[in-house]
Write a protein that binds this DNA or RNA. Structure first.
Lengths: 238, 238
DNA sequence: GCCATGAGTTGATCTAGATCAAAACAAAAA
DNA sequence: TTTTTGTTTTGATCTAGATCAACTCATGGC
């Protein structure tokens, strides 16, 4: 269950850019037209800029059309917990439905573009298109599953296992989008990876170096190449 | 945003036992009758018994009517990550909507009782009662927020901070249910606390002992008394 | 009630990962 | 181009929490 939204079938897909990733929901042309009105407002977000900030009022979800985001929570003392990295086709803002306020910051890690999805409209439309409602529920639930997997990672894996799990996750998501699963460029710094995995940046760097020494991957700054996917997976017994 | 369900207003509440905790949703008597049919099947779960198991087919959410549950994920090597502790009024099973399969095990930590909520019925009814749908979305979103808080805890807090955050969380939830916020009985073992907080049981025990030495709390086996709530909160600068 | 078994505490030691430090490297600005 | 600034790597050291071990306490079954 990937965190993608299904409303971008055919015509409405083109405008929103989420095309292939959408799960087929089986809408008729009338329904597709209804959806066309929902998702039309695009917004560009330059690298380093905020898509939304903690505490601001919630109106819309955002579907990533292009680019890469991180979301994170800040503690008073400045510690930053990255709650997720988000790529094309994924939805940002599900946390905000609860209190009608964003509970984290969302920053673009490269020049990006999102589709704004006004949430009250989404709720209205999902009443008349049950398959849309069901799909939305699956997306939210999938987010919970994903978070539980991160809890597993943070609560009971060692540094190397965490990094491998992270790489395998990225690899799978790139692959699903038609990119190479063994050759990709990280959009985030070592520190940001560490803030996601509950590790210091030095530990992340050392774990990369160790995997490279073992000829399992090669690391060239932000470029990662996976030479031996099987050995990588074996290390986390997936 | 507590993880409670709202369908238990007045008459239907009595049968389900979630009464006071429900957020008022403002239903008319006709709507309440519709809901009456939804949540009626009760199920008792003895201490140590499973409410559901990983991988089994999903039909229903469960609202805890009475008692206490833990949910957890098992890794192949036996490592257990507790994903949550659930008390009266809280919903279990939101993770399963995504793949229509439960993604974790749920075990009763004391003799308990749940209301079964057939999910397909819930979806149908929420189409005709928009306020119910909205409330359900808030519950799911609240679950995501809660999970992000746990990620923060696991990813960037030290042992003592984790335990205090856990105690404050329990304290708040007991208080909301009309029980003392400074005096309560833990339903789980040190090991289960550890499996939730990403710590070993000895570390949990030592953290308890340290807080007791500092006269902030007292610990008598599973009974906790908080003497100095302010000092406790200051330690995690809440 | 008594015993057996599981739960909890405490001490001694070990280690994975944090911290501190310095150098190498890359990308952007001047 | 050179300078500046931020990122990454690697080494040396330290420490929070894990691990190992022993003992105490509580509880449920008989």
């Amino acid at each position: 269950m990937s965190n993608t939204i299904s409303i971008n079938i055919k015509s409405s897909c083109a405008s929103c850019g989420l095309r292939d990733l959408c799960l087929p929901v089986g809408l008729n042309s009338n329904e597709i037209e209804i959806l066309g009105n929902l998702v039309n407002h695009k917004r560009a977000v330059k690298r380093g800029k905020y898509l939304h900030r903690t505490g601001t009022s919630f109106q819309s979800l955002y579907a990533v059309r292009r680019g890469f985001f991180k979301t994170f929570i800040l503690e008073k003392d400045g510690r930053q917990q990255v709650t997720g990295f988000h790529m094309t086709g994924e939805l940002i803002g599900l946390d905000a439905i609860s209190a009608e306020i964003y509970t984290c910051d969302a920053v673009a890690l490269e020049d990006s573009e999102v589709c704004e999805v006004p949430f009250s409209k989404l709720e209205e439309i999902s009443r008349v298109i049950p398959s849309l409602m069901k799909h939305f529920h699956k997306i939210m639930s999938g987010e919970i599953v994903k978070d539980h997997e991160v809890m597993m990672l943070l609560g009971s894996m060692k540094a190397e296992e965490r990094l491998i799990t992270f790489l395998l996750n990225l690899s799978g998501r790139f692959s699903k989008r038609g990119y190479s699963s063994v050759d990709f460029v990280l959009r985030m710094t070592r520190e940001e990876i560490g803030n996601y995995l509950g590790l210091k940046l030095e530990t992340v760097s050392r774990a990369f170096s160790k995997l490279q020494e073992e000829s399992i991957i090669s690391v060239n700054n932000k470029h990662i190449h996976i030479h031996d996917m099987d050995r990588l997976k074996n290390k986390v017994d997936v």
